[in-house]
Simulated assay, not measured.
Amino acid sequence: MLKIAFCDDENQETRRLEALLEEYAADRGQDFAHTSYQSPVELMAEVEKGTRFDIILLDVLMPGENGMAAAREIREYDSNVKIIFLTSSSEFAVESYAVDAWYYQLKPIRREDFFRLMDSACAACTREQKHSLILRSKSGIVRLELEELVYCEVMGRTLTFHLNNGVVLE
């Protein structure tokens, strides 16, 4: 189950994102755990406590600390979280690259844009959760999912991987 955080100072926008997520979850048959925050300070307090999120949808323009500053601080604790900026201003789009943002989306976000962003971010999170190796074999460079590996053997200087589908990589 992916953990998602929404951070926006506007209650109406947060409720809209929650409704879109519920609709997305029902449409895709997935479960999500989500938490909403009214300020970056609240979000950062959770991150500093060790709470880990897979995806954060973060407004940039908020009173006090803005979303961009919060993202910089989040990166000190978590380099893998997918940060998606949702904002009414294109002013910080270039700066979002500096914090390795997953995406920068202007408000109001449409249903199809939200679904596309979530499809992309969820797919990336799923890939990262799988354990795999990238190997050079006789057939070229291959990604080997560890769940598929039955056993490996070493004969001389050759390493052979036997997979559960009968494929043998040398």
Rank of each mutant, 00 (worst) to 15 (best):
58 L>Q: 07
63 P>E: 15
56 I>C: 10
63 P>T: 05
69 A>D: 14
71 A>E: 10
82 K>V: 00
55 I>G: 06
83 I>F: 08
72 R>K: 15
79 S>E: 13
77 Y>R: 15
51 T>E: 15
81 V>W: 06
52 R>N: 05
78 D>I: 08
60 V>A: 12
74 I>W: 03
62 M>P: 04
73 E>N: 11
77 Y>S: 14
49 K>P: 00
76 E>I: 00
71 A>K: 11
77 Y>P: 00
59 D>G: 09
84 I>Y: 10
65 E>T: 13
68 M>W: 06
53 F>I: 02
75 R>Q: 08
73 E>V: 05
82 K>Y: 03
61 L>D: 13
66 N>M: 05
79 S>N: 10
66 N>G: 03
69 A>I: 09
64 G>A: 14
58 L>G: 07
60 V>R: 08
81 V>G: 05
58 L>I: 09
83 I>D: 03
60 V>Y: 05
63 P>V: 05
67 G>S: 07
67 G>E: 01
50 G>P: 05
79 S>D: 13
81 V>H: 04
70 A>E: 03
50 G>Y: 01
66 N>Q: 07
76 E>A: 12
60 V>E: 12
83 I>A: 07
63 P>R: 12
84 I>M: 11
52 R>S: 13
82 K>I: 00
57 L>N: 03
78 D>H: 10
55 I>C: 06
73 E>A: 14
60 V>I: 14
82 K>R: 15
55 I>V: 15
54 D>M: 08
59 D>M: 08
66 N>T: 04
54 D>P: 09
75 R>N: 09
51 T>Q: 14
75 R>H: 08
83 I>N: 03
